[in-house]
């Protein structure tokens, strides 16, 4: 099968001798139950060290893309029907989840999903399942330095912590295997605005300190575009728009549909919903 080149940030802009991108989705197509197409012909890439936001509303297929990347689609009767996922050029689409983690890709799932009955420290230990005991101890101490709050609560049952603390723990747990690519699925979900600020600060900080590539999946487009370098907008399983984050944030359509402001800058009322539907064709 020939792979058509990516229409947007594709090979044309890349220098011929540039290193392969950290992660690259090539014409990915994901089907659930052999019937429902969740992601259709999506190509996306993140260069090493970049923070790439993947935006879109509920059910657009954002989480499905991350699940395909981390190899757990099969647990939900889903499979990659077409296309492939490449980590620094190597095809990882058929790898088992633990092999993908070993290769340095960690996916922090939506809704935090800390292990509720385990203590903070045990949660971190499971996060470092693929590493040796001595490295694990080092990384745990490092995680406690990054998140002093977790150090205070190291022996506490994770299920009883606040949402913000659980999100911190979920991120810290994801870092325990020493990833190069960190995929965060809606880290702001259900958190208070102040806590979201803090989480985003941490993400930026980690990206710099650990030289991480970050794939940030969000519904909260405004917040995500503030810290991202590049953004993709996914709708009904297809990418409808992509570009550098600052340009995307200024794009009229994005402002209207995702940032909550109309052309005049004022919030639209529900009376204009029909008008929205008619205009929902993306031409970028």
């Amino acid at each position: 099968m020939t792979t058509p080149s990516h229409p947007h940030a594709g090979d044309a802009e890349r220098a011929p001798d540039a290193p392969p991108p950290m992660i690259e989705f090539r014409n990915l197509q994901v089907v659930y139950d052999d019937a429902i197409e969740a992601v259709r012909d999506v190509s996306l890439q993140a260069e090493k060290g970049a923070l790439v936001a993947l935006l879109g509303s509920n059910g657009a297929g954002k989480s499905t893309m991350l699940k395909a990347m981390s190899g757990i689609l099969y647990a939900e009767e889903g499979k990659i029907d077409n296309g492939s996922i490449h980590l620094e050029g190597a095809d990882i689409s058929a790898f088992a989840p633990d092999e993908i983690v070993r290769r340095g890709v960690v996916h922090v799932p939506e809704g935090r999903r800390v292990f509720p009955a385990l203590t903070v420290e045990e949660n971190l230990q499971v996060g470092g399942f693929t590493t040796s005991a001595s490295v694990l101890r080092e990384r745990r101490d490092h995680a406690f330095e990054l998140f002093p709050r977790l150090a205070e609560r190291r022996d506490q049952i994770a299920g009883y912590m606040s949402g913000g603390e659980q999100q911190m723990l979920a991120i810290a747990r994801g870092l325990m295997s020493g990833p190069r690519l960190l995929a965060l699925d809606e880290p702001s979900l259900g958190l208070a605005p102040m806590i979201i600020d803090r989480i985003y600060e941490v993400i930026l900080d980690l990206k710099k300190k650990l030289d991480l590539t970050v794939l940030l999946v969000e519904q909260n487009a405004a917040r995500a575009l503030e810290i991202a370098d590049y953004g993709y907008i996914l709708e009904n399983g297809r990418i409808v728009l992509d570009g550098p984050a600052d340009k995307l944030a200024k794009n009229e359509d994005v402002q209207e549909f995702y940032l909550g402001a109309g052309q005049s800058g004022a919030h639209k009322s529900m009376r204009d919903v029909k008008h929205y539907k008619r205009r929902k064709r993306w031409l970028s």
Binding site: I72, P97, V101, H107
Partner: peptide
């Protein structure tokens, strides 16, 4: 499922 994501086989 989350255990899978952490690399537990």
């Amino acid at each position: 499922r989350t255990a899978l994501l952490m690399g537990v086989s």
